[in-house]
């Protein structure tokens, strides 16, 4: 898709979508949203960027290989489930704590990190598939 309008707008659109995906991910704790849908939005952002500007710039921008991102997400999710080992509770039991950053209270939980892990798994695997398909199309 080699149109000037698309190529000009794609980087801005992609960055907005990534920002929105993070919003959806964090919102998902109490309201509709979450890691899976957030990950899908981010992956579509990278796909759009890839369609507009080619696959190589996307890979450069991501820095890590999509599969490695996926692996990181899986690791994060699995380890956030294992925190409850130290609390005498079963696997995947949510643990909450509250920290204060510059006087603002922030709730942290293993559930959040599990969801961030899901986000990375989805971003990594869907981006990996999308980029592989786009590469084939351009080749």
């Amino acid at each position: 898709m080699d149109t000037l309008i698309f190529r000009t707008i794609a980087p801005y659109l992609a960055s907005l979508m990534v920002l929105f995906s993070v919003f959806v991910l964090l919102r998902g704790h109490n309201e509709p949203g979450g890691g899976f849908i957030g990950g899908l939005i981010a992956a579509s952002a990278f796909a759009i960027y890839g369609i507009a500007c080619g696959v190589a710039p996307v890979r450069r921008a991501l820095y890590f290989h999509p599969m490695a991102i996926s692996g990181f997400g899986l690791l994060l999710s699995a380890l956030s489930g294992a925190v409850s080992l130290f609390m005498d509770m079963p696997f995947l039991t949510g643990q909450w704590t509250e920290i204060s950053v510059l006087g603002l209270p922030i709730d942290l939980s293993t559930v959040l990190f599990f969801d961030i892990g899901v986000y990375f798994v989805v971003v990594g695997s869907i981006t990996s598939i999308a980029l592989a398909l786009e590469e084939r199309e351009h080749a």
């Binding site: 996926s70 692996g71 899986l74 690791l75 699995a78 380890l79 079963p90 696997f91």
Partner: peptide, 22 residues
């Protein structure tokens, strides 16, 4: 009691690390 999830969790974690160290 965690012995029951170990046979699943350990391979998943190892697999994830292997994916990161691809």
């Amino acid at each position: 009691d965690w012995l029951v999830v170990g046979p699943v969790a350990i391979p998943i974690v190892t697999g994830a690390i292997l994916l990161m160290a691809r």
